[in-house]
Design a protein around this nucleic acid. Sequence first.
DNA 1: ATTACATTTAGCTAATTAACGAAATGACTA
DNA 2: TAGTCATTTCGTTAATTAGCTAAATGTAAT
Lengths: 109, 109
Amino acid sequence: MYDHLKIFKALGDETRLRIVKMLEVKKMCVCEITSIIGSSMPTVSNHLKILKEAGLVVQDRDEKYMNYSLISKGDKFIDDLLVLIKDIDEPQTRSDRETAIRTDRNHIC
Amino acid sequence: MYDHLKIFKALGDETRLRIVKMLEVKKMCVCEITSIIGSSMPTVSNHLKILKEAGLVVQDRDEKYMNYSLISKGDKFIDDLLVLIKDIDEPQTRSDRETAIRTDRNHIC
DNA sequence: ATTACATTTAGCTAATTAACGAAATGACTA
DNA sequence: TAGTCATTTCGTTAATTAGCTAAATGTAAT
């Protein structure tokens, strides 16, 4: 499967698009994302893997947490795509972003 | 399902991405597309419906043929996305485009 | 070492998706 | 009205996908 197809497949899933839109506002660890998405941790972890393999997100460890964030300087196609996605403003993902801002990982994880 | 998700789902299928890339080079009727894609006409017709409902392609009748083409002036998100997609150059879709140029509907349909 | 966060695997549902052939229907042309 | 291109529907099959729980493993901090 070629890269661009992989990218569109990654984004063509509601849960993964929700995750991408949340990561626009802040870096998040798996358990924060899990608490907002409402799926199990293995499920969320797998979605993150798919996003990572599509080149959309990157991970870095922050002490005991694994932080996920949108890739900042990657492929031109992906950078431009992420700019386009920033303009998406839709009730579910907006609510997720507001929740994400209010969420403190020290209370959740 | 909200619009942007519908768009990514439409593009997250190899056959439909092939169709989009072919439509970059010319308007095509269903039987031309069918002959290049190699699926049955009902199948291709359904893919075109999905692309149409995502707002990516439009149709217009040209005599006995139904021409499909990429939307030229639509939603800003879609316009920008189609610009990004233009840069995709990958063996399968390139070959499709070359075939499309060489294809004469009067011989095929 | 133990704890905490994360990932992976396995085995399992359930839902969705893509495809087919065949047949009926539409839409338009000649 | 007969022919052609296109669409839709039906019934079916096969593959993929998303989700779960449970359990094992990895990784790093305390």
